[in-house]
Write a protein that binds this DNA or RNA. Structure first.
Ligand SMILES: [Mn+2]
Ligand SMILES: [Mn+2]
Ligand SMILES: [Mn+2]
Ligand SMILES: [Mn+2]
Lengths: 228, 228
DNA sequence: AATCGATTTTTGACTCATCAAACTTCCAAT
DNA sequence: ATTGGAAGTTTGATGAGTCAAAAATCGATT
C-alpha cells in the first residue's frame, strides 16, 4: 500500500479521537459521529470506511460502527504525533499563539516528513504534551492516557493543576489565555451551581472567574504538584 | 474562485520557473517541458493548461505553448515565496541540511498559511535569498532578477562570489557543501578545457576543485564584494 | 511542394473523494 | 407485536486529476 492520502489520515485520526472520547467501554464509533467530525455526509463516511476496512486499517460493523485495527491505530497515533509536535513547535519556536496553531497543524501534519518531525521532537526536548495539554504519542505510536477529572467532577476548594483543554476553538482558547487558564496554572473550584449553569473559579493571582458548565467540562485538572 | 489546489499551484510555479529559464525572449513554455517538469504525460498538461486558461491564470496558444497572465504570475510568485522562505527557515531555524530542504519545502509550500509565512519572514529578517541563492519574492510577488554569469562564462583568474546554485538535487548539493562551494564563498576559475569537459576552480582556503562543464553551468557567480 | 518524425491534442477510461436522494435497518415507544 | 422515526446504507452522479493510445499538427529536410 502506498502512502496514505491526507483524507485517509484524517479519517484514521478522527476515528482514533472518537474512540478515546467514548465514555462507554465499546470503542465502536458510530458513522454519524465520524461523518460530522469530518464534515462529510454520512454516506460518504460509510463508503470511505468500507475502503479503509479493505485496507485492514479499521474493522467495520454495519449499522454498529467502526474501530481501528492495530495497524490503523498506529498510523492514527503517528498523525496525532505530527499534529501535536507541530503545534508545540509553532508555539515554542515560531511564537504563534496557542489559539491559532491547531488549524495550521491540521494541514502541516500531512506535509511534514518523519525527518522533520523527529528534528522538531529533538529541538523541543522530547516533550510529553502539546500546548493544550494533549499527550504526544512516541515514534511507535504509544501514548500515555492519564485519566483526569474535569472542573465539573473535581473536588471543591482544593488546589489543582490545570492539565488539559479539550477544545481547539480559537475564540475559546483566546478567552482562556486572557483568563490565565492555561495548562500548568494552579486553580481551585470555589462553587458550582447546576441550576445557574456556572462554576466559580479562583485562579492564579487570586483571579475570580465564572464559566458555564459546558466550558467547565472542557477543562481537565490533575492533583497539585508534589511539594518542594 | 476558491483557493488554488496544490496541483494548480504546482503548475503555475513550474510555468513561472520555465519562463525564467527561457533563454530566448519569448516566454512561451512548450507543453513538453511543462509536462516533464511536473512528471505528467503531455496530454495531462494540455488538459490542465486549458482549465488554467479558463480561470484566467495563463494564456494558452495551441501547439505553441503557455505563459502566465499577471494574475498567474502573482500566484506563482507567492508559491515560490512560500517555498523559498520555508527552505531558509528549515536551514536557519530547524537546522536541516540545505541538501534536504527542497523536497520538504515542496510539500510545505502548499500547507503553510500566509500568517505562518509572514512570521517566518519576520524571524529571518526579511531575507532576500534562500539557501541556494534563489531570490525570494516579496508579499506582492515582486522578485529581483539579477543576471549572473555562470562558471562557464565568467572571466578567468578573477575573484568572484558564488551567488546561486540552480539545481536542487540532493547529491549534487551534498557534494557542493563538502567542497565548500556554497553561496557567499569566494572562488576563482583557474582554467577551462572544453575538450576535457572540465573547469578547474580555486576555492576558499586554496582548495583546488575540478568539476564538469554540466555542473559548472549550474553555479552562478557575481562580482566580488566591495572592499572594506 | 511532399514527407517524415517529433510534438501536441484528443478521446476514452480510470481513481479518489464527495453529495443528494432514495432506500433499508434498527430500536424505542406505544 | 407494530410502527414511526432516527441512523445508516446504497445508488447514481459529479469534479479533479491522471494515463494510454489514437489522431492531428507542425516544421525541418529533402
Ligand atoms: Mn490541534
Ligand atoms: Mn493540541
Ligand atoms: Mn527548492
Ligand atoms: Mn531553493
Amino acid at each position: 500500500m502506498a502512502l496514505p492520502s491526507s483524507t485517509v489520515e484524517n479519517y484514521l485520526k478522527a476515528i482514533y479521537q472518537a474512540e478515546m472520547a467514548q465514555e462507554d467501554g465499546t470503542r465502536l464509533v458510530p458513522m454519524g459521529r465520524l461523518a460530522s467530525a469530518l464534515h462529510v455526509v454520512p454516506g460518504t463516511a460509510t463508503t470511505m470506511v468500507k475502503t479503509l476496512a479493505e485496507s485492514g486499517l479499521v474493522r467495520y460493523e454495519p449499522y454498529a460502527g467502526v474501530r481501528l485495527t492495530a495497524a490503523g491505530q498506529k498510523l492514527a497515533a503517528l498523525v496525532l504525533r505530527r499534529h501535536r509536535l507541530m503545534e508545540l513547535f509553532l508555539v515554542e519556536v515560531v511564537g504563534m499563539s496557542w489559539a491559532d496553531v491547531h488549524d495550521e497543524a491540521e494541514r502541516l501534519e500531512h506535509a511534514a516528513s518523519d525527518r522533520l518531525i523527529d528534528r522538531i521532537d529533538e529541538m523541543l526536548g522530547r516533550p510529553a504534551v502539546d500546548p493544550h495539554g494533549d499527550p504526544i504519542p512516541d515514534q511507535d505510536g504509544a501514548m500515555a492516557t492519564p485519566r483526569y477529572q474535569t472542573l465539573l467532577t473535581c473536588p471543591i476548594d482544593t488546589a489543582l493543576v490545570l492539565a488539559r483543554v479539550t477544545d481547539q476553538d480559537t475564540d475559546f482558547l483566546r478567552f482562556l489565555e486572557q483568563s490565565h487558564l492555561t495548562p500548568g496554572e494552579v486553580i481551585r473550584v470555589e462553587s458550582r451551581d447546576a441550576a445557574a449553569d456556572h462554576v466559580l473559579l479562583r485562579g492564579a493571582g487570586d483571579r475570580s472567574i465564572v464559566i458555564g458548565m459546558r466550558a467547565a467540562a472542557k477543562l481537565l485538572v490533575a492533583p497539585p504538584p508534589p511539594p518542594g
